[in-house]
Amino acid sequence: KAKLLVLLYAFVATDADTICIGYHANNSTDTVDTILEKNVAVTHSVNLLEDSHNGKLCKLKGIAPLQLGKCNITGWLLGNPECDSLLPARSWSYIVETPNSENGACYPGDLIDYEELREQLSSVSSLERFEIFPKESSWPNHTFNGVTVSCSHRGKSSFYRNLLWLTKKGDSYPKLTNSYVNNKGKEVLVLWGVHHPSSSDEQQSLYSNGNAYVSVASSNYNRRFTPEIAARPKVRDQHGRMNYYWTLLEPGDTIIFEATGNLIAPWYAFALSRGFESGIITSNASMHECNTKCQTPQGAINSNLPFQNIHPVTIGECPKYVRSTKLRMVTGLRNIPSIQYRGLFGAIAGFIEGGWTGMIDGWYGYHHQNEQGSGYAADQKSTQNAINGITNKVNSVIEKMNTQFTAVGKEFNNLEKRMENLNKKVDDGFLDIWTYNAELLVLLENERTLDFHDLNVKNLYEKVKSQLKNNAKEIGNGCFEFYHKCDNECMESVRNGTYDYPKYSEESKLNR
């Protein structure tokens, strides 16, 4: 008799109507990190870190770059004969040098303040090359056809396309004075040089004057150069050297050249137009028929994500570079809930034993079982409120962090190594801060989002509990077992918050 009662009780308990509160689960393989956990499985997430590029040089917003090819900045601007293909260059979106560009200054020497000139050019998007001192009329008392084997072109001695090597005419090199007034309405880049012979005999042979000088002056520039005559090792078949100089001439300003020898005179100059998204990159990537809004030396990035880990040097509207390998923000729920887990921000989770793959029309909802059958029903209101809140948060985070910009490298010469090392340390410090901030932001927001979901499920549970009161009992896994019969209409009233407690209280009292 006792065995019969136990079996009867078990049958009745199993047959009781139930309603459970749960949440969506799926077959997603997404994982995120939080402050407290690593690799948390979630139903949905968004990636904030771009880690792919196309490996190509592309047009930037429809404008092609200027590819210097086998030449570098120095060779292009001075007019190395091997860089003749660059003479027609007028406009570009950015400038590309190759790491091993070999054609710079063909006659050995240095372009002074080269690093600063590169910085200036990094904001130039177009130029006009014009004859600042016409070759045939500007130097009537001097020979202007100086050439050298060091600047050979097609097997013949030649010289820079933008400079003139002035030497004596006959047996004399009379003092020369020439000036140019900038009437271009924009900055003009003027380049010139000073020749330093290897011996007094060479000085006399070329310029006749043993104590020659070169003077260059404008409103913002004033220097006097004296040739340094000295024996030097042979470089590119030359014992002599040429140093090259430049200045930016403001609109309306005048530049005056005065010399008694050794002047490498300007022939062509450049009127410059600035462009905020221009820059110089060093890259071996090849040019393709493609378009982008962000270019790196590795390749083009076409992404609206706020961060990238491809390269710190970028041109155009680019994500911020960070050292992170993963920045994924959760938008959905835990896919593998932890039992009795309390989140960092106070939300209680884990009283549900598992997510439901059968509930596909919402994030949170119900599963019921009664004599009429069983089924899932999503709670659309709480789901939609959660979707709206999380979507707004993700968009806000992306908008705040998605300050796209150009980031170019800084140039230092060989004598500025300590400054370069200090600059690298400062840049590394800023990069570490950006990386830390980005990672911390994602970790915190992921923790908040998961706790937010847990709290929403808990609130749904409490909503049902407050309606049923003692007409049902909690069975410990997020479910309630009714003390009365609850048909589909009754189940719907529980879900929509209109459950009639008094209607079922007498039946429940008897069954309790």
Rank of each mutant, 00 (worst) to 15 (best):
N262W: 07
P88S: 11
I73T: 06
E116S: 03
N243V: 04
S172R: 06
D113W: 10
V96H: 09
S273V: 15
H196N: 14
H239G: 10
R161H: 14
N183R: 07
A10V: 15
L49R: 05
N183D: 14
L164E: 07
S198H: 10
S126V: 12
Y23E: 08
F225C: 13
T167R: 06
C83A: 03
C20H: 03
W246H: 02
K168H: 11
T29Q: 06
L272S: 00
E187G: 04
S215K: 04
S122H: 08
N80K: 11
E115H: 05
W92T: 02
C83V: 11
I264E: 00
E37D: 09
Y173I: 07
Y221W: 13
R90E: 14
S52K: 12
Y221N: 03
S101P: 13
L263I: 13
G252V: 00
L272H: 00
E119N: 11
E258D: 13
G69W: 00
F257C: 01
V6A: 10
T43P: 00
I281K: 05
I229E: 02
N262V: 01
D15A: 14
V46A: 06
N80S: 13
T74H: 06
N39P: 08
K61E: 13
D17W: 10
R241M: 08
Y245H: 15
K184C: 04
F276H: 11
A10K: 05
G104M: 09
L4C: 02
G185A: 13
G22Y: 05
E228V: 11
I95K: 02
R161P: 03
S93Y: 07
N39E: 11
K175N: 04
W92L: 11
A269W: 09
L5N: 01
S172Y: 13
L166R: 01
N100K: 08
A2V: 13
A231C: 07
G79T: 04
F257Y: 13
S215T: 12
T177M: 06
W267K: 07
L163P: 03
L189V: 11
G79P: 06
E187Y: 05
V32T: 01
K234V: 15
K169N: 10
V6Y: 12
V12A: 14
I264T: 03
G22N: 05
P99C: 00
A41C: 15
V214T: 10
N262G: 03
L127M: 13
V96Y: 05
I255K: 00
N100A: 10
K168L: 10
N54P: 03
T148I: 03
R129C: 08
R232N: 08
N209Y: 10
E258C: 10
W139D: 01
H153N: 00
L163A: 00
L189Q: 10
I229H: 12
Y207V: 02
L191T: 06
L68C: 02
E277L: 13
E119W: 10
N54D: 12
S123H: 09
D110H: 06
K169R: 15
T143E: 07
N211S: 02
G146M: 05
G79F: 04
K234A: 13
F130E: 09
V188I: 15
